[in-house]
Structures are given as structure tokens and as C-alpha cells.
Nucleic acid binder design. Structure first.
Lengths: 245, 245
DNA sequence: ACAAAAGTGTTCACTTTACACCCATGT
DNA sequence: ACATGGGTGTAAAGTGAACACTTTTGT
């Protein structure tokens, strides 16, 4: 017998994974599938976020990290609790009700939603018991429960957050090129950015450090590699109170 | 018998009220007081946020508005759900446990926290059954549960939010002076702002509309009155993707 | 006339934006 | 040699920050 679950409270994790090769911001989703008893019809066939009930003894942050770790094996990732969802009808879709009955959790479950930032290459999906799969944020499949809404809100929060905090580097490898960062911002924000202006801006930051190394194994001019120094960032960081309404 | 309460989930409301006369950003708190059965000692004597269990049939937003309305009689205020709190020990202080036992709610209650913005002058506290009282954000009394933490996080969120969205006008009367707005920003952010620069900046906004009226009943030079036009703001608003990391 | 707060301009430094071509490398 | 993405410079416009005195009104 494991730890006691709180039956009406869960955490859900929106896992953002950046695929640097495809320049694609992805979401990690889990297959939800159920056939009727006779096997003659498909009752549930869609995707959901990874999530689970909160245990009696743990904090919300701990619960979210546990859930994320169970799916990916990873720890110490950047995470943010961004919103709670608890509408009475959030699990009331046809397929959702079948699923809720089968899994025997409360039809009035509140979920505290987190998002996590990582690199797709850090996750091994082969042999995953949950049939987890990456989907580009712009090409999501049919989603169960209110998870489409949850993902949309996570994405909005990420868009805002990435403009004011250096969280983008959580989505990139330790060594990256300036163009990698630009591609990432473009993927997150869905906009085009001027390369010269972006490059100048980034290179002028003291916490973006040129490594004096170049890319290897590329079939073109290899680019200069940089790293992000959190130490320097924390020292240099200067809270500004610019009112831009 | 009223609507059914969900025993382990509540909403808590951080009510920000701006007192334009005193130039003070205040928090509305409720007295928590309990004597021992003999009356010989005081078991609980502090303040808490207003909050209540969520009902079976309602959304979180509805619950928060209901709670706020019960305390203040007001509706249609600006509100924001900013964070959920659910640490196992959040109701485990000595006084908290006495209170939880008396009120018979679950010692593992999760709360979804909202903040509301209003003007202190819009709330009538006389004859309030809850012994509610305003406290300047910088002079909070002893607080029960984890409510000091909740208030701190609400304040931080408000600081960030007021820099990028015109929510400050929710804290001011319809007609206000430029200096009123400056005082408010100073109260929220805890900083000093240059009057000339601030004034120029605000007056240049198309949605800050000079009314051609002046203050009355002031014992000094009366100031020009302005209003905020949400209509104009929505039309003029231009999402910008300025990366300032 | 005085007290109190309202209101007013300028300069300098820096940042943003717009824009098009050459360069270095691997194949 | 060629294809591919890497890398580069400048000018104009706008914004932010610093800074001190005069004006208007009520009492």
C-alpha cells in the first residue's frame, strides 16, 4: 500500500520540450485509450497531460515534481505553478466520464497546473509505459478533460515570462548559438525577429558568454557557441520598475 | 441546509483597497479570536484573510466572488487568481489547529488564492459581522495560517501586473489627478517616481483623458481631473514582444 | 503674504527599429 | 564551385532618466 492519495486534488504538468533540431516547441502528452468490454467500439481515444493525485504528506511542488519524474525520470527542472482549475464540468465530457468512472477518481477533481521546461533530447520515450508522445504546440491532438485550456494558459504564461526572465535557457543545451536562442523565441512567441538586432542585443548581455568554441559536425559554416551564466545574471540583475501600460 | 461545501478546498481573497486620502495601499483582514472555555486565557487572537470552502456546484471564480461579496457587498470587481497553496503544514500552527478543530474543517485544506482591487471608500465596515479591518500593506498584524505568505505573494504579483496592465485604475475613483496615479504607483511599488517624467508619460497616453474639470473642496491649488478610458485602451493596445532579460 | 501642492522643459544617453550583403565552411 | 546558414554596420527615431523653479489657489 502506497501513500494515501487525496481523491479530489491533482496536479497536472504541462511539459514544454524544445526540439532544437526541428526548431519546435513541443508538449509531452499521454495516450488515453479504452475499448468497450466486447472490444467492438472505442470509448476513449485521445491525449491528456500527465498528472496525478496529490498525496497526503506532500506539498503541491513535490507532487508536481514526483509526477514529472515518474514520466521522464528527470529532476531539478525549471517549473512554475501557473493556475488552478476546478470548474464543476471540467471532467464532464462523454469520454471523460467513462474515464473517471474506470479510474475511480472524484468527478469533481481540482487540479493545480504546473509547467516544466526541458529539452526533448533529455527525455527517452522508448519503452514508456504511458505511451507518451511529443506534439508541436501548434499541432495538438484531440485532448481530454479541460487540458486544451490548461495548455493554452500555460503557453500564454510562458510567452509573458520569457520576455522578462532568462528561462529560455532551460529549453536549450548548455552550449548554444545565438541563432538557437532566436529560433527558440520565435517558436515560443510565434513571431519573426530581426537577426541583426537580436544578435547584438544578446551579445551585449554580460551573462551571455562566448565560449571561443564553434559548432562541430555541421555541414555549413559552424557558429560560435555561447553559454548562459546564472551567476553573472544574478549579480548584474537590476530590478526595474518601468511602467509600460 | 445550504449548498454542499467541499471540505478540503477553499478560496482565500486578498482584498487590496487603496485609500486615496491617506495614500495607503491596504489589505482587508478579519479578526480571529477565541478564548478558552473558562474564559481565563486567549487561545486565538490574530487576523486572517477572508475565505471559505468552495461549493459543489460552483467554479473557483464564482466561489471567490461569492466570498468577496459576502464580506463587502460588492460585485464585478477586478480579480485575479494568482496561486494555490496546499502545504501539509499550512494550517498547523498552534492557534490554527485550535481554530481548525473548532470550525471543523479539514486540516489538509488546499486554498486557491485570489486578489481583488477596490477603493477603501467603497466598503462599509461598520456593523460588519466579521470584525473586518483595513491594514496598510506595510503594517500587517499577526496573521493566522499561511496568510502572511499568501499576502506577500499577492503583493508581488500585483507589483508585476501593474507595470504592464492598466489595473491601477481599479484602485482609483473614476475621476483622478495625475498625482493620484503617481501616489498609487509609489504605494504599490514602494518606490519614488519623478513627477515630471511620470506626468508627461501619462498625459501622452490617449486613454488618459483630461476632463477639463478641476478638483473641488481642496485647500490649495485644485488639480486637473482625468479619467481612464478602457475603450480607447483596448483599441490602442499594441502587444509588444520586447525581450528584456 | 504665506503655505501647499500643481505644473512645467531641456538635455543627454541609450535603445529600438529598419534594412541588405559578404563570409566561412563542408560537400 | 556552390549551397547553406553565419555574421556584420549604420542611421534615424524614440524613450528613459536626471534635474529645479514658477504658478495657482485657499486661507
Amino acid at each position: 500500500m502506497g501513500p494515501k492519495e487525496i481523491s479530489n486534488i491533482s496536479v497536472d504538468c504541462v511539459v514544454f520540450g524544445y526540439d532544437i533540431k526541428r526548431k519546435s516547441l513541443n508538449i509531452l502528452l499521454i495516450k488515453r485509450y479504452l475499448e468497450s468490454e466486447t472490444g467492438s467500439s472505442v470509448l476513449v481515444d485521445d491525449y491528456v497531460l500527465t498528472g496525478y493525485h496529490v498525496y497526503e504528506h506532500e506539498t503541491l511542488d513535490e507532487a508536481s515534481s514526483r509526477v514529472l519524474n515518474k514520466l521522464t525520470g528527470l529532476t531539478n527542472l525549471y517549473k512554475k505553478q501557473f493556475k488552478a482549475f476546478g470548474a464543476p464540468d471540467r471532467l464532464m465530457g462523454e469520454a471523460d466520464q467513462i474515464w473517471v468512472k474506470k479510474k475511480q477518481f472524484s468527478p469533481r477533481t481540482f487540479t493545480i497546473a504546473y509547467y516544466f521546461l526541458l529539452k526533448t533530447e533529455d527525455v527517452t520515450l522508448e519503452g514508456n509505459a504511458n505511451k507518451a508522445k511529443w506534439f508541436p504546440i501548434e499541432e495538438l491532438p484531440r485532448l481530454g478533460f479541460d487540458h486544451e485550456k490548461i495548455i493554452k494558459e500555460a503557453h500564454e504564461d510562458l510567452k509573458v515570462k520569457c520576455l522578462s526572465e532568462p528561462i529560455t535557457f532551460e529549453l536549450l543545451p548548455v552550449k548554444f548559438t545565438i541563432n538557437d536562442v532566436q529560433d527558440l523565441y520565435q517558436s515560443i512567441l510565434g513571431i519573426e525577429i530581426d537577426n541583426r538586432n537580436f544578435r547584438r542585443k544578446l551579445i551585449n548581455k554580460k551573462y551571455i558568454i562566448a565560449l571561443g568554441e564553434k559548432q562541430t559536425g555541421v555541414s555549413k559554416k559552424p557558429a560560435q557557441l555561447y553559454m548562459f551564466s546564472k551567476d553573472v545574471y544574478d549579480k548584474v540583475f537590476n530590478k526595474n520598475y518601468l511602467i509600460s501600460i
